[in-house]
Design a protein around this nucleic acid. Structure first.
Lengths: 329, 329
DNA sequence: ATCGCTTGTGTAATCGTGTACACAATGCAT
DNA sequence: ATGCATTGTGTACACGATTACACAAGCGAT
């Protein structure tokens, strides 16, 4: 195994040209004779030469690296979007670096590490990172932040997500079905995204002179949804549970059915949020507040393009959620 | 927003030293006076200076980047492991670059792109990439390949996974339960991993003078599991389906119950593979062939360490699967 | 006082590209 | 034949760090 790669200077010697000409052979729009280019590319192929992207980045001041700050990779509520985004980035020859960390101090440290790699773009999916931290750490790269309220900061672009209308539709149906006692099963209580999602539903209830009778905190996992739902149903006697994401909703549905023998939608209404693929599976068939993943990623890619084009000013794109009707509410 | 970062030379001027001394202030084991170091670090913090990792990589010949070649991000059968690995890498200050591509030609192109970034390590999770392609493209970096058979190549390290014993246990139980007609529901038919997994079960059947009566090909998705299972049950009248992964098994279970009104484990046995968290949820409770994710990732990290320590020679680590018993078989 | 060792710092080369600039060769219009 | 624009190539420097080497200062032992 060759431990060392061949360099442009070495290749130049082999092809009988200067290293500058080798570089030109690999730049599409540069003044170079066709014969020379072909010869260089042939020799390059023969010796397995590829320009060193690290050296190029240093020279260019463009790394073509993109930092993606996410809460988790495994969690399906983000995974589908991550997958889409990664594909779109790669189609643009951008390489994604995943930053994903359980502990908050570690997360900031990790972001600092990534920032030393001169990433061209930063996309913050994680609601555990404050806008100010993102701006401070990546102070030369305007971060793109996924948020649920408009961000008032020149140095940030944002995707704002609004689900208030869809939440209203869902509450409307559940109330018409005769449900009276609502509970909210939140994700981590440090998540401000969850607070806003809760607000959409709370506002819809208030319009009908209702309010959440109970509240519980899970951690976006199936197990926490299961466990907290048992409490809500048993102790608080609720008949409708709005969950912070789809996975907890599935856990809650299982708990209702298994532990208390209560079925959706007759005995109890259960609502998820995210609209992940699994929610539509026959065994789940969840009613859920969902976002169009494609539109979401399109918006992120558009902001990346604006940054590349160096269009100035703050940018914010708003997306609205829709209701997906299943048999759980 | 400051578009430009401060450089070590500029910081040197500010602190009244040379750029070499600035560099030393950031290298733990270098000869530098304590007072000088403290002063430099203070000035650095004040001006938000961090050494440029791209420049450092160029000099060091070490990028601290790791390429992860995966089939998909969203797919839970890989996601849990990816998550674990990303955490472990980041604890070592290594940054993961995710390479994930639907189309095969694109995938190879993407791997070539990543290789120009001088990645320190390559981990190939995807069974869509041949060993030879990985070796050719990353010819200066010995790839770590997750495989299901021993790889006979000096230039490759591998994790070999063996589930033959666990498959035998599972088949034993199903046969004792009186099931007679077995089908195998494979993932993509171009996947050689799937061929080996199938072989574990086929061998176990052969030991009992049985064989697969039918075979179908899905694509590892819920929908394909659902659709193919309908065919297998209806046309081929099988009473046991071994699936290529857990997600398809869930789809198959739903199909059996919903379309043909047949329940596990009495009417039909269904077995998954992977042992993802979701398989253990109450609504699924799958019998599945599973791998210890932690041991798996430990093995990968160990191979990375060996590469870093420049221990020569081919390395292969073998892991064995275990059966997880649920109510579907 | 001299030697030798240690410590701290600066100078300069290096890593592998990209590109501004210079210059020779060519073609074309005058 | 002269002038000018165009084309193709080489030279040299920049990108931002690390590090081998040199050297001065300090210190203890002889």
């Amino acid at each position: 195994m060759n431990r060392r790669r061949i360099t442009s200077k070495e290749l130049a010697k082999l092809a009988g040209v200067s290293s500058a000409t080798v570089s030109r052979a690999f730049s599409p729009d540069s003044r170079i004779g066709n014969a020379t280019r072909d010869r260089i590319l042939a020799v390059a192929r023969e010796h397995g030469y590829q320009p060193n992207a690290i050296a190029r980045s240093l020279n260019n001041q463009r790394s073509r690296l993109v930092a993606l700050v996410v809460n988790a990779i495994g969690n399906p509520c983000e995974a589908e979007e991550q997958q889409l985004l990664v594909h779109r980035l790669q189609a643009r020859q951008l390489l994604p670096i995943i930053l994903c960390c359980a502990d908050h101090a570690d997360r900031l440290q990790l972001m600092r590490l990534a920032s030393t790699y001169q990433v061209d773009h930063v996309v913050v999916f994680s609601d555990m990172v404050s806008m100010q931290d993102a701006v401070d750490i990546f102070h030369t790269t305007k971060p793109i932040i996924v948020s649920f309220e408009p961000l008032e900061n020149e140095n940030v672009s944002s995707i704002r997500i609004d689900g208030s209308e869809a939440a209203d539709e869902i509450i409307d149906k559940i109330v018409r079905d005769g449900k009276k006692r609502f509970a909210y099963l939140a994700g981590t209580n440090s998540s401000w995204i969850d607070k806003l999602r809760r607000k959409w539903f709370a506002d819809a209830l208030a319009k009908r002179s209702l309010a959440f009778e109970a509240q519980a905190f899970g951690d976006y996992s199936y197990d926490s949804g299961f466990k907290e739902a048992v409490m809500l149903l048993h102790r608080d006697k609720v008949d409708a549970i709005i969950c912070g994401n789809d996975v907890m909703a599935i856990g809650a549905r299982d708990a209702a059915r298994r532990v208390l023998g209560r079925n959706t939608p007759d005995d109890i209404a259960i609502v998820g949020q995210d609209g992940i693929a699994m929610a539509a599976w026959d065994c789940n068939d969840l009613t859920t507040l969902c976002l169009d993943h494609t539109a979401f990623i399109d918006a992120i890619v558009e902001l990346i393009e604006r940054h590349d084009a160096e269009i100035e000013g703050p940018h914010s794109i708003t997306l609205t959620c829709t209701a997906r009707w299943g048999s759980t509410a």
